[in-house]
Amino acid sequence: MGHIIAALSQKGGPGKSTIARAIATTYAKAGWDVKIADLDVKQSSTVDWHRRRLESQINPVIAVESFGTARRALKAAELHDLLVVDGAPHASEATVEVAKAADLVVIPTSLSLDDLNPAVLLARSLSEKHGIPVDRIAIALSKCGDSAVEIAEARDYLGQTPFHVLGGQIPEKTSFRRAQDAGLSIVECPHPSTRAKADEVVQAIIDRFEKIAL
């Protein structure tokens, strides 16, 4: 069975699809056979992103499929080196099922308490209520502004929890939105300085995944 990395959230909007696509393209470029399981059956935004990627003939080619249940999605891990799960835009039984199977759960959050609180609540629920080991849960800062004070405050807030906080942060950038509109992931953004910000976060995810799973 292949490895599983899941991008999960308590609510929509913190950037889990963005992170899932970046993880998948990074590993695909390294020669891994990767598939993204899109569990947001109502919007299927990652399936739409995949269609744009195929239409533009962007390499590497990544398999993407929409799944109505976590069980069906997780079964796909048997056929690939890595399954990246782009979770539904809300916590559910499927969220727990995916988290239990994943080698690493990445929970993205912006810098506002409206996102930080739900991210921590989800992490605590997975670990305390459902028995997911704390070291398999990582929190990523996403959709961040350019205030160093606000970033530091968010890291201080998260540092009071037992969960691993990934290095770097993904800024809120027009170039990232335009890249994804074109079927690219944020680690394929054509602007080097902006892309470097994405690379830092994805490398932190890779480092954490390899530390606990490989």
Rank of each mutant, 00 (worst) to 15 (best):
Q180R: 11
G145H: 08
S193G: 04
I186H: 03
V98S: 10
I137P: 03
R178E: 04
P190R: 06
L82D: 11
V34Y: 11
A30Y: 00
V165Q: 05
T25W: 09
V84H: 13
A179Y: 00
G168P: 05
I23V: 10
E188V: 01
A152C: 04
A73F: 15
A182I: 00
V149L: 11
K29L: 00
G131Y: 04
R21I: 00
D115A: 09
F163G: 08
T25A: 07
R155E: 12
E97Q: 15
D135G: 02
V149R: 12
Q43N: 12
V165E: 07
V165S: 05
L82K: 11
V201Y: 04
F176P: 04
G13A: 03
G31L: 00
H90E: 02
R178V: 04
D40L: 04
A138H: 05
K11E: 01
V96R: 12
S110P: 04
E153N: 13
F67G: 14
I151G: 04
A179T: 08
A102Y: 07
A37S: 11
K42C: 06
T95R: 07
H164R: 12
P89A: 05
P162R: 06
V202I: 15
L104H: 09
S44T: 11
G68A: 10
L113K: 11
L214Q: 12
K197T: 09
A204M: 08
A204N: 10
I4V: 15
G159W: 08
F67A: 12
S193V: 12
P171L: 01
L54A: 11
I19T: 09
H90Y: 11
A119M: 05
D103M: 05
S45E: 12
R51P: 00
P192D: 10
E200N: 11
A7P: 05
T109K: 08
L79T: 15
L158R: 08
R178P: 00
V85G: 03
K211G: 14
C144A: 13
T174D: 06
K100W: 05
I205C: 09
A213Y: 10
I151M: 01
N59M: 09
I4A: 11
